[in-house]
């Protein structure tokens, strides 16, 4: 803006000008915070991922070395395989359970208002609380296994949480417990949005319930499927607290996920360069899922 002489400006003029600038002035702090703390920090971390930073940030560039080393480290391999298992099962099982609960709840169920909050409350809990509960429930020494044995089923065994091959599956159980109710709510909202006239017409044409769901209802739930997939996959990639609370990555490093890897390498093992590169990979993976989704949503709103 050109400099103006305040003496020549009438009071009213100044007020109008201020009013014109006020919206931007009000937005400015949030904008600045976002630019610095989100995008500036992302840029800084990306930069660090190309440096030889160890315990402290260093500014000496080393090219792609950290990424090359990252993909040679055994624990990163473990973390990626675990993420594949965890995310795959978590998404599929939560979606199936959520969809079934939503469809069943949508059958004019008595007590729906009582059941729905029960399905959904785990979503209000901290993953540390969920982890603590499931850690001891699945602990063979005091939880499910020993209880079943005391009740007379002496050969009952369920010690996955202590078994490095199986421990990752116990994380899936707890995570599904926490978020399948949320998926139910998304599908239920979708089901309630379907036009009943179409269903009635189909019914008059003699369509069976199964046919109606397969041909009419499920295809209309496509946006809900997409939302569920996007939200669950982004939660899976960010998963950290639940693993820390349940197994702390163990036994050994068998339940490491990328988020644990990043934390361990950066803050415990003083390999900040490698830690930063793992964070960049996490960001890119989430961006690949979220950006197209958000872009489509934003365009749709216009």
């Amino acid at each position: 803006m050109a400099a103006t002489d305040p003496m020549l400006d009438s009071g009213a003029d100044f007020r109008t000008r201020l009013q014109n600038w006020l919206p931007k002035i009000v937005l400015a702090p949030s904008f600045a915070v976002m630019v610095i703390f989100v995008y500036g920090f992302i840029a800084f971390t990306i930069y660090l991922s190309f440096t030889d930073s160890r315990m402290l940030p260093s500014y000496d560039l080393v090219g792609w070395q950290n990424y090359e080393r990252l993909f040679r480290v055994r624990q990163w391999d473990t973390a990626l395989v675990n993420l594949g298992i965890f995310a795959g099962l978590y998404i599929v099982i939560s979606t199936i359970i959520g969809l079934l609960l939503a469809i069943f709840l949508d059958q004019k169920i008595r007590g729906e208002g009582f059941l729905r909050p029960i399905f959904l409350y785990p979503m209000a809990l901290s993953f540390i609380v969920t982890g603590t509960a499931w850690k001891w429930i699945l602990d063979p020494a005091i939880g499910l296994e020993v209880t079943m044995q005391r009740w007379g089923w002496e050969s009952f065994q369920f010690d996955w949480i202590k078994d490095s091959e199986m421990a990752i599956y116990t994380i899936v159980i707890a995570a599904v417990w926490q978020s399948s109710g949320f998926v139910m709510a998304m599908f239920l909202a979708g089901l309630r949005g379907i036009d009943n006239e179409i269903l009635k017409a189909a019914q008059m044409d003699g369509a069976s319930n199964f046919q109606m769901y397969r041909r009419i209802i499920l295809p209309q739930l496509r946006p809900a499927f997409l939302s569920a997939f996007v939200i669950l996959s982004h939660l899976a990639i960010k998963s950290y607290d639940l693993v820390v609370a349940m197994t702390d990555g163990g036994p050994g490093t068998s339940t490491w996920l990328p988020a644990l890897f990043m934390y361990e390498y950066t803050f415990t093992r003083n390999q900040m360069g490698i830690g930063a590169s793992s964070a960049v990979i996490m960001l890119m993976t989430i961006a690949a899922i979220m950006v197209p989704y958000l872009y489509a949503e934003l365009r749709e709103q216009k």
């Binding site: 989100v38 920090f41 992302i42 990328p258 964070a279 996490m282």
Partner: peptide
Amino acid sequence: FIPFQIVLIPM
């Protein structure tokens, strides 16, 4: 929706 690991070090 960013994974907060990406801001931990600078923060």
